[in-house]
Amino acid sequence: MAEQVALSRTQVCGILREELFQGDAFHQSDTHIFIIMGASGDLAKKKIYPTIWWLFRDGLLPENTFIVGYARSRLTVADIRKQSEPFFKATPEEKLKLEDFFARNSYVAGQYDDAASYQRLNSHMNALHLGSQANRLFYLALPPTVYEAVTKNIHESCMSQIGWNRIIVEKPFGRDLQSSDRLSNHISSLFREDQIYRIDHYLGKEMVQNLMVLRFANRIFGPIWNRDNIACVILTFKEPFGTEGRGGYFDEFGIIRDVMQNHLLQMLCLVAMEKPASTNSDDVRDEKVKVLKCISEVQANNVVLGQYVGNPDGEGEATKGYLDDPTVPRGSTTATFAAVVLYVENERWDGVPFILRCGKALNERKAEVRLQFHDVAGDIFHQQCKRNELVIRVQPNEAVYTKMMTKKPGMFFNPEESELDLTYGNRYKNVKLPDAYERLILDVFCGSQMHFVRSDELREAWRIFTPLLHQIELEKPKPIPYIYGSRGPTEADELMKRVGFQYEGTYKWVNP
């Protein structure tokens, strides 16, 4: 592979701008107003304001973009700056750019259920340069409990009458099928589907988006991507930290609602779906819905739930269990780990287990898709061969690698495990991989909904998990304890083995 010439960040961002501006969906010269509902909250200060700053800094926003914060707290732009700027990672050389960014910011205080507050917000936006005809993007960085009041008031008082209007809704989209349907029906009564952007930030990850290209742009994968060759698929999300004093919020939802029903299920769809007619948003989402419709409700015998306990040999936070978090209700049975087996009941995947695993306070930070292939028929190497695996590593250190057998150097035919490896950090030294939120917010500006969740996708996802969630809430089974920093409950490994996964433990990928 030829040595790549190092590029400056300015040059890299210039390439990104060229890609972005050559499309006809990006209205570079139009006025846009980006409204952050819930501007005083954690999500706004840690993710949304920093993301908008990065896009502005790199010249990736339309030229005439204004940012308006809205929340109940009586704040000023200076207050917003004070709480969000520490997350910007701005350099001293960017000081003038930073001043320009905050000059485009404003803030309006108001209630979430008060019509007069929204009329005041609308008047404020109209007073901005060309504000009355601007395109408006409303980001709901809010708890779902206020979605209905907020969307109703936005629709009645704050819509642009000339430009387009788009609304970005953060997960969780309800707690179960019934609450999700209620919320979807409410929002759909106010906005068209092409105006609604239900954001799952995992769909903005580079390697998640790469799944489609790997599958449908490489001839070698087509013939082997089926039940005849693939023994099982494992989708993993692991965090090495616990709730760390923020367990009160987590306890309301648990690990299945927080990660599995959305992030992991979306990745499953991209692995299992048929080739779409095109890369058009609805063509892709149509195929994802077909996959979900082929999955039956989760069966309790295919589920393992766990909850982390303190590690007596650990240090600091590792010595504390979930129930030691003062914000967690006493005696909570909320799971911090889950392993679930699903089956896609169609011709391509009949009988292939899709194993979804996620948890907190585990032994490493990792998100990946792992396809394990069947054993080689007619073994001539005296059971020395391990199964081939194709691994798409989402985070950290984005990579695609194939675990395969090669001859060990020497005189004899002794096979050993090795890999074919594409590590993004080595291959793409001159490429700026956008943060997931950067990519998705740019998608909203461009009107691309491919990486957002459609209402029928959402409904099918909740259909699969709601009976299990209701059973857990009714019966309150005690989750299996696992030690902070471990791989999780051993019962999860036993479940995976029972459905056909072979864990060798003899080879570990190392970032080159």
Rank of each mutant, 00 (worst) to 15 (best):
N126G: 15
G110C: 07
K205A: 01
L190K: 08
E156L: 14
V169W: 03
G222R: 12
W164P: 06
L140H: 06
E93N: 15
C232M: 08
K95S: 12
G110V: 02
P62T: 08
M212V: 04
V108E: 07
F138L: 05
S157D: 13
I48M: 06
I187S: 05
L177V: 14
F66H: 14
L211S: 00
D30H: 12
S29R: 13
R219G: 14
E252F: 07
S123K: 15
K171N: 01
N165F: 07
Q133G: 09
F56T: 05
R166P: 01
T51K: 05
S106N: 09
S160F: 05
S184L: 09
L16I: 15
F66C: 09
C158Q: 06
A25T: 15
P144Q: 04
K95G: 13
G204M: 02
D200E: 04
A6L: 11
L20K: 08
K95N: 10
A116H: 14
P223I: 04
D194H: 09
L177T: 12
L61G: 02
M37Q: 04
Y70C: 11
K82F: 11
V208S: 05
Y139V: 05
L203A: 04
D24V: 12
D30F: 09
S184Y: 09
A127H: 15
A78R: 11
Y249K: 03
H155P: 06
E156A: 15
P86W: 06
S160K: 09
V68K: 03
Q11R: 11
K97I: 14
N185S: 14
E19N: 14
Q119E: 14
T243L: 09
D100A: 14
T236R: 01
A25R: 15
Y202N: 04
I80Q: 08
T151V: 11
H129T: 15
M207A: 03
Y107T: 08
F241L: 05
A103Q: 15
D176M: 08
H124A: 14
L142F: 02
Q195F: 04
L43M: 00
I220W: 13
I224P: 06
A115T: 13
F173C: 06
Q22D: 11
R198F: 05
W53V: 02
L96P: 12
L214S: 07
W225L: 01
K238P: 03
N122G: 12
E239Q: 04
A103P: 04
P50K: 09
W53P: 02
H155I: 03
R227H: 11
G131F: 08
A25G: 15
D24R: 11
G38H: 00
F21I: 15
I230N: 05
E18Q: 15
D194T: 12
L235K: 02
K82G: 10
D30P: 08
K45I: 08
Q111G: 10
D42W: 01
G245L: 11
I80A: 07
H124Q: 13
L140K: 03
N64K: 14
M37P: 04
Y107D: 02
T243F: 00
Y147F: 12
R136D: 00
G131D: 13
H32R: 11
H32N: 11
P223V: 05
N165D: 08
D79A: 10
T31Q: 09
C158D: 05
L7K: 14
P50G: 05
L98H: 01
Q178G: 12
Q195N: 08
A71S: 12
I255D: 00
V150R: 03
S184N: 13
N126R: 14
M37E: 03
N135M: 10
A231V: 07
R198E: 04
E19S: 15
N122S: 12
I48C: 04
E63P: 14
Y197H: 05
S132P: 13
L177I: 11
R57S: 06
S180G: 06
L60N: 07
F21A: 13
I168T: 07
F191P: 01
I230S: 00
R198P: 01
S188W: 01
R227T: 10
Y118A: 07
L140E: 00
L43Y: 04
S84F: 09
A116S: 11
N229F: 05
I167Y: 07
S180F: 05
D228R: 08
D176W: 03
I230R: 01
K97S: 09
N210K: 04
A71K: 00
S8Y: 08
V146W: 04
Y139T: 06
K171F: 04
T145Y: 06
G174L: 03
Y197S: 01
L20P: 15
A231C: 09
Q209R: 01
G222C: 14
I35R: 06
E19H: 15
R246A: 03
P50E: 00
E170F: 02
P144D: 02
D24A: 09
M212Q: 03
D200L: 03
